[in-house]
């Protein structure tokens, strides 16, 4: 297991997971969100080739109201 930060909260996931696997493990479902890893945008097309590492910070954002 490794420790990662997801939307500001520390949590543990299995080591060696790619983004797609990590999202599933973290119980994020669906397609209506975007993801950044350590402050850098990760496109859906690269989820499976991007590995999550210890202490990585993951931001998962979805649509909300805005001005």
């Amino acid at each position: 297991m490794i420790e990662v930060i997801v939307n500001g909260k520390r949590t543990k996931i299995s080591s060696g997971l790619n983004i797609k696997e990590a999202i599933t493990a973290l119980e994020y479902k669906g397609e209506g969100f975007a993801l950044a890893l350590n402050g850098t945008f990760v496109a859906i097309s690269t989820y499976e080739t991007t590995i999550v590492r210890e202490n990585d910070s993951i931001e998962i954002l979805a649509p909300v109201q805005g001005g």
Partner: peptide, 18 residues
Amino acid sequence: TVSLRRQAAGDTTSKGGN
């Protein structure tokens, strides 16, 4: 205008949307 904010885990409503 719209925006993006952190999504809670387990939000399965409407294809991950809202």
